[in-house]
Design a protein around this nucleic acid. Structure first.
Lengths: 283, 283
DNA sequence: TCTCGACTGGAAGATTCGTTCCAACTATAG
DNA sequence: CTATAGTTGGAACGAATCTTCCAGTCGAGA
């Protein structure tokens, strides 16, 4: 939602900006109103820089001083104002992007609204249980989201595993499950047979199962101890897993909240490891 | 569309306005941007009145001079500028789920609104190019989303690869890139150094690069041919990649649209393979 | 360690802007 | 026709803002 004109120029000047100028540029992108309505001093304060730096940035971007930059932002904002009011009356989304936007907003909204607090708390409690092992099982279509969940949970606790690989490997892993383990199964309509069967055999072994699926009528829901439903409507050829990922984020945040002490310790250790190898960069 | 605050006051003072003041008030209602962005002189000229009349009107409306009137209009305009339409419906943001809901809705909304049609078309064209190979490179935190994208694209076309594994493997793969290839790099702030360096060396080899990142000021944006920005605000400990996934879905849908014939053929073959092994179930 | 260059923010100067004052103008009542 | 109250816009004043200049600071390289 930042103005296109200035965003374009900032992107072009990206490499030639000094640190202080970069701070100002970030504020310009993130808070355009401050540029449109505010003054040089306001921007400078928000960016923790001097007024001169603000003016220099404007010049570097090709504008005629801060006045030129401000005029550009005002123009962009004004053009965003009219259509905004008119689009509200007209919910019809003609363009492809707008159609996707509606689908995805609806997926997120439907998925999270359907999530009940008690169900969430129950699942989180199991995922945060200290001595259990967590296994994530996913249909092929949602494999990436499942990996995302595993990765996030691994940053918070040990013993989180994705059940994948070939059929033999999965069967071997499932045979090793303990009754104290937790299984998260993610699969939507057009269910993968092997996923269902794997989940069923795990359940038969006494593993506590939570299903993340598209309907309470799903075969997954039939064998799970808890079922969380997701919306996956899409404007494209495949199901959208945006709602699923949003749900995963809520679960992960819940686990992080429960494991605050251990998790922060874990994160700190990871952080210091990154620091020592300087494998992360801020800019 | 006119700001409620001033409209209210103008309506209240309706009868006590002089002719010239009335002309100014009309302009204020019909062209609020002129008040928000302009000066006393601008308003006076638009209303064919003197500057003093403008100031007098502001005082009559109960504002502290023109400055007060302008501040009021700016405030109203700024509130109309945000995607407040979705937030207002939400009753409150007290519970954890509601907070996540707001974050994720905003991520999706901001990300897809920032997507320009021409940029989308350009990226889709490259991703759908017949003879090129597509490589996806991702930071650790967005690994799952990257895999999701690779999986979806693989359902539509050949030669889509995720650049991962150990450092040596990645370097080997990068060294094999051709100038006709396409590289999709996904990484957000706290950029993984190896991702940036890998992308840079690929770019040096003439590979067409698209960056999916959180800001135009990202180091990725500096070296990419195209940059798509995503919003990743989160109520949890980690960045949310919901917006990124939504963007990926739009890209995938675009590619599917371009490759309709080949893609449907591909999907049909996959479908029949599933059918023959009955590896998918409807219920 | 020293030098040179780039970067940065404070301060002065120039400009614009908001406010106020007041003379000119208009309309209405006597 | 005249006088008075109300209205209006130009002009001056003071405040705020933008711009420019410059000395201090930091870091890289010799």
């Amino acid at each position: 939602m930042p103005p296109v004109e200035v965003a374009e120029r900032i992107g072009r000047a990206n490499t030639s900006l000094t640190p202080a100028e970069r701070r100002v540029a970030e504020v310009v992108l993130e808070r355009p109103q401050l540029v449109a309505f505010g003054t040089v001093a306001d921007l400078a304060e928000a960016a923790s820089s001097g007024a001169a730096t603000v003016v220099r940035l404007a010049g570097k971007l090709g504008y005629d001083g801060f006045t030129g930059l401000q005029a550009s932002v005002q123009h962009s904002l004004a053009s965003q104002l009219r259509p905004a009011a008119e689009r509200i009356r007209e919910p019809a989304a003609t363009d492809a992007i707008g159609r996707h936007l509606q689908f995805e907003l609806d997926n997120v909204s439907t998925t999270l609204r359907a999530l009940e607090a008690v169900a969430l708390a129950d699942v989180v409690a199991h995922l945060a249980a200290p001595k259990c092992r967590v296994h994530v099982l996913s249909g092929d279509a949602s494999n990436g989201v499942a990996r995302q969940m595993v990765g996030d949970l691994l940053a918070l606790r040990d013993d989180v595993h994705l059940l994948d690989g070939n059929d033999v490997a999965v069967r071997r892993k499932v045979s090793q499950l303990r009754s104290s383990d937790v299984l998260v199964t993610i699969d939507l309509r057009r269910y993968d047979r092997w996923v269902i069967e794997t989940a069923r055999s795990a359940r038969a072994g006494g593993v506590w199962c939570v299903a993340i699926t598209d309907s309470l009528l799903s075969p997954l829901a039939a064998l799970a101890d808890r079922t969380l439903t997701v919306a996956a409507a899409s404007g494209g050829p495949f199901d959208s897993h945006v709602g699923t990922l949003a749900l995963s984020n809520v679960l992960v945040a819940g686990v992080a909240d429960r494991l605050r002490l251990q998790a922060t310790d874990r994160l700190d250790r990871a952080e210091s490891a990154w620091q020592s190898t300087s494998s992360l960069m801020d800019r």
